[in-house]
C-alpha cells in the first residue's frame, strides 16, 4: 500500500503512536473492509468509530428510513435526516467525518437469498451484527459460519446488552449458545420494551473495538465468551462459553448446510 500522507500521519497520529498499531497497523485499518448490518442503535456508533479510525471500506446494510424515534440512540442520523434512507444518511455522516472511508450501501433487509452476495460483494473481512431481531441474528450467524467469516454479535434491550465474537474454528458460534429461535413474542424487541439510548453506544463501540483488533491482529478477541452489561447496576460479566460439539451448524455433524429464513415475528406495535 502507498505511503501515508502527511494529513493521514496527523489524523491517525494517536493510533500510530501506539506500539501495537504504528504506521503499518494504520495501513491495515485503511485497507480493511467491515460490513455493518443494521445502522441503528448498535450499527450507528460502530460505523462512526470505524469511520473515524479510517477503515477503508465500510458496508452499511439497512432497508429502513430514518424515523424521529430513532434519533435518541442512532447517532449517525441527524434531525434533518428523518425520512431519508438510513444507508444514505449514514453515508453522509461518514463522508463528512473522514474522506479516507468509502461507504458501500445495501438498501435491503438481509435474507437467505441475498446475504451471501452482500458479504461476498467486497469479500468483507469482518461483519458486525447490529440488527434488532432474532431471524436476522440467526441468519447472520449461519451465513458467517458457512462463509467462514468472523463477526461480532450483539443485542441490547432496556438497560442490558450482550456481545460475543465469532472466529471460524476458534470459537463457539451464536447457535452454540442459543441453538434455537426463542418462541414468538417470548422476547420483546426494543420497539416494545424500550432501550436506554447509550446502550448501543457502549455495546456497539465494543463491536467496533473487536473489528479493529481483528483487522490489526492484536490482543484477545471476545471469542469463547459472552460479555453481558447491566447499566442499572453497572455490571459487566464475561461468561465463558464452550463450543457445542452438537451445534447444528458448526458442530461435528451439522444439520444446517444451507441458509434459510426464520419467519419474521410480527410486532403488535407495528413498525
Amino acid at each position: 500500500m502507498s505511503q501515508l500522507t502527511n494529513e493521514q500521519l496527523e489524523r491517525y497520529s494517536r493510533h500510530i503512536i501506539l506500539e501495537q498499531v504504528g504506521g503499518k497497523g494504520q495501513k491495515k485499518i485503511l485497507s480493511a473492509k467491515v460490513l455493518i448490518i443494521g445502522t441503528g442503535g448498535l450499527g450507528a456508533p460502530a460505523a462512526m468509530y470505524l469511520a473515524a479510525a479510517g477503515v477503508g471500506h465500510i458496508g452499511l446494510v439497512d432497508f429502513d428510513t430514518v424515523d424521529l424515534s430513532n434519533l435518541q440512540r442512532q447517532i449517525i442520523h441527524l434531525t434533518n435526516d428523518v425520512g431519508k434512507a438510513k444507508t444514505q444518511s449514514g453515508r453522509e455522516t461518514i463522508n463528512a467525518m473522514n474522506p479516507d472511508v468509502q461507504v458501500h450501501a445495501y438498501d435491503e433487509q438481509v435474507t437467505a437469498a441475498n446475504i451471501r452476495d452482500i458479504i461476498g460483494d467486497l469479500d468483507y473481512d469482518f461483519i458486525i451484527d447490529g440488527t434488532d431481531n432474532f431471524p436476522a441474528k440467526f441468519l447472520i450467524n449461519d451465513a458467517c459460519v458457512l462463509m467462514r467469516k468472523p463477526f461480532s454479535h450483539a443485542g441490547i434491550i432496556r438497560f442490558q446488552g450482550q456481545t460475543m465474537t465469532y472466529v471460524p474454528d476458534k470459537s463457539p458460534c451464536y447457535r452454540c449458545v442459543f441453538p434455537k429461535m426463542p418462541p414468538k413474542d417470548a422476547v420483546p424487541t426494543c420497539r416494545q420494551a424500550g432501550v436506554l439510548g447509550v446502550m448501543g453506544g457502549v455495546i456497539g463501540t465494543i463491536q467496533a473495538t473487536e473489528a479493529l483488533k481483528f483487522v490489526l491482529g492484536i490482543g484477545e478477541l471476545l471469542t469463547g465468551y459472552l460479555l453481558t452489561y447491566d447499566a442499572l447496576t453497572m455490571t459487566f460479566r464475561k461468561i465463558k462459553i464452550p463450543r457445542n460439539r452438537r451445534c447444528n451448524i458448526c458442530g461435528e455433524q451439522p444439520t444446517i448446510t444451507e441458509l434459510f429464513d426464520y419467519e419474521q415475528p410480527t410486532c403488535s406495535f407495528g413498525r
Binding site: 501515508l4 500521519l9 496527523e10 497520529s13 494517536r14 500510530i16 503512536i17 504504528g22 504506521g23 503499518k24
Partner: peptide, 13 residues
C-alpha cells in the same frame, strides 16, 4: 509533538 515521533516511527518501519 506528536507528529515528530509519528514521522520518525513510520520512517523506522
Amino acid at each position: 509533538c506528536p507528529i515528530t515521533f509519528v514521522k520518525t516511527k513510520v520512517a523506522l518501519e
